[in-house]
Design a protein around this nucleic acid. Sequence first.
DNA 1: GAGTGGTCTAGACCACGCA
DNA 2: GCGTGGTCTAGACCACTCT
Lengths: 240, 240
Amino acid sequence: METDRQPYRPLYTQIQEALVRRIVEGEWRPGELLPSEQALALQMGVSQGTIRKAMDALETEKIIDRRQGKGTFVAELTQEKSVYRFFRLLRPDGRRIVPTSGNETVRLQPMGARAALALGLAEGTPAFEVLRTRLVDDQPVAFERTIVPEKVFPVLDRHSPLPNALFTLYQREYGINVVSTDERLRADLCDEQDAAYLGLTQGAPLLEIERVAVTVTGERVEWRLSRCNTSLCMYGITLT
Amino acid sequence: METDRQPYRPLYTQIQEALVRRIVEGEWRPGELLPSEQALALQMGVSQGTIRKAMDALETEKIIDRRQGKGTFVAELTQEKSVYRFFRLLRPDGRRIVPTSGNETVRLQPMGARAALALGLAEGTPAFEVLRTRLVDDQPVAFERTIVPEKVFPVLDRHSPLPNALFTLYQREYGINVVSTDERLRADLCDEQDAAYLGLTQGAPLLEIERVAVTVTGERVEWRLSRCNTSLCMYGITLT
DNA sequence: GAGTGGTCTAGACCACGCA
DNA sequence: GCGTGGTCTAGACCACTCT
């Protein structure tokens, strides 16, 4: 007599999930050294090869950092790495932009319909809204509106001035790891607010980037709308 | 006495390159079955594990297709796979667009400055230019100008009507495998030509996508400029 | 049942970083 | 020189596909 067959799950995927769980739960903090592969193999009762295969996946997901001769570390979202990983704006000549911010304001207010829809929350949910301008060579190139639920990031306004890459703050202060973003791009015309922030005239073309940040556990924790002056910059990406 | 030390190259990377070379040279055609891992291991004088690791990389690069129980095949760019892999336009509600073409024209003429610059060729190099309109639900949403060197794709005009995904044609008829694209996005205003092709009014916002296609050997073989009506579609992508 | 890719193990050795 | 991750091997067994 046979019972219901469980779907087949390789051992290394279970190891992988166990490791993610232990990292998310804070057993090892960002930047910390993990036990060696041999030690984990002994501890978890599998061979080193199986630990390796699990860690290969974690490395691909950028959850850990492996350094030959030194060890394996929980990935840390440093400013440089984080900024370049998710910030895709380039100068017209193709060089990368290191964004700097101007005119930052943070306020607590009910979440708007568009952000709420994208984050799967109810309109009016208490949220922090961060408005800032992105500068390149002291020229404003983009105007950003970032909205996060207050419940997920309490007292966000206390951390002002905010870092250029908010994801580093999310990780450091809230233990929340953003691992991917969904982006939607459209063209639009410059409205009155854009014109004021970007020093453009109404009716000029604008690139609008709508972004949702997703954590390692699949939660959508941040919504951002960027409106970019693409006469000063462009969005660049390689598809594979 | 020591001679110059060669930089260290793991065995599996050499196997990987050898396999790519044999595929590019046509020893196995797209869709064909490769020898089994065991057979290749014997043939190349390494262990099966090393063949596996090389093939893991080829699979990530989408150069081969592995199917448990059946074997390993040279990847074939089918219409469905190829279209979805590099075509990032979505409907306003987020559903994928299956592009269909209208008004296709192909002509042989000197390459323009912008395409030549992007492809690293001299302006005026003989080239085929493909103009077509992309339709969604019989509505024109994008106007595409695709330029390829005649030398790389001789008598391209004989293959009309062209498939929706040109990359499948490049692979099937010319043995050229596109494995990645570099894309640059900007916002612009609708000009007279756009207006004619897309049924818009001049001054409406447009999303411009400039794309360069790169082969497995790193050659830039195609330049494309798409001008999209983002009131009917948008560009969507997930960053990781 | 035969053959393929996929998993898992155990052990050896290599390249790297650091003290 | 030691400990770490990275490579390579050899062999066993599992899951899947087709005959």
